[in-house]
């Protein structure tokens, strides 16, 4: 019986694992992003920061490979023809979030912005909120594959956190422009704030689509 079951799902089991692994990559990227920004605020472009930047690059690279693999397998093995397009969209959307984490960490690496200490707390806060958005997106998306009734719960969390992120980034931007910093510095910090907040925005867009996919997934 067990062997029969194993061979029945022999071609879907590896793909199931790859989809799970892809979601793990999103969580890894979110965790490492949080860590990276903290390292930067403490040590700027130190060796540790370079190392974590490389790690996130590797995660992004692995996620790209997994995404291509998942897409190819779904088509070559003609799996879930009715939901395939939605799954591909979903995986590509999640990949956009991972890419954005990598992009922001790399921008910090290239630009090496001077961030006055009084803004560190706010920066950490919006980084945490963006990471949390991605984490909840990952859980919601994982639920789409197994337990779609809980997609809505985690999606709601993403919406809530994204709103918090908007409010927080707005306050940070206001504080930056109210300060005596040189205009160039203000503009640079404003841009980086927007980039970090955009992670939450992308996660929200993903959830919007995910909820539509979930409605379609119901029989």
């Amino acid at each position: 019986m067990f062997n029969g079951k194993l061979s029945l799902f022999s071609h879907t089991q590896p793909l199931e694992n790859k989809i799970d692994l892809f979601h793990d990559k999103l969580l890894d990227a979110a965790m490492n992003f949080k860590k990276a920004i903290r390292i930067y605020l403490k040590e700027k472009r130190s060796d540790d920061y370079k190392k974590i930047n490389k790690q996130i690059k590797q995660i992004e690279h692995d996620a790209d490979n997994l995404r291509r693999d998942i897409e190819a397998k779904l088509y070559t093995q003609n799996l879930i023809p009715d939901l395939r397009a939605d799954v591909l969209n979903l995986v590509e959307n999640l990949d956009k979030v991972i890419n954005k984490f990598d992009e922001v960490v790399y921008e910090f690496y290239i630009e090496q912005p001077d961030i006055p200490e009084e803004y560190h707390m706010r920066f950490k806060e919006i980084c945490d909120l963006s990471s949390e958005c991605a984490e909840n997106l990952s859980i919601a998306s994982r639920a789409f594959f197994r337990d779609f009734s809980s997609v809505r719960d985690f999606s709601q969390k993403v919406y809530f956190i994204e709103h918090e992120s908007d409010v927080s980034s707005g306050h940070l931007k206001q504080a930056i422009f109210d300060s005596e910093l040189p205009l160039a510095n203000k503009l640079q910090l404003n841009n980086l704030t927007s980039e970090i907040a955009e992670i939450a925005d992308i996660a929200e867009d993903c959830v919007d689509e995910l909820l539509i996919f979930t409605i379609k997934r119901d029989i």
């Binding site: 799902f9 879907t12 879930i80 939901l83 799954v87 594959f145 197994r146 997934r217 119901d218 029989i219």
Partner: peptide, 21 residues
Amino acid sequence: LYYLIRYRLKKSKIHILRRDT
């Protein structure tokens, strides 16, 4: 059948790839 299958699918939390098979 619709109600029965829908209930079973929700309860079983089966992966969509397995459901497809």
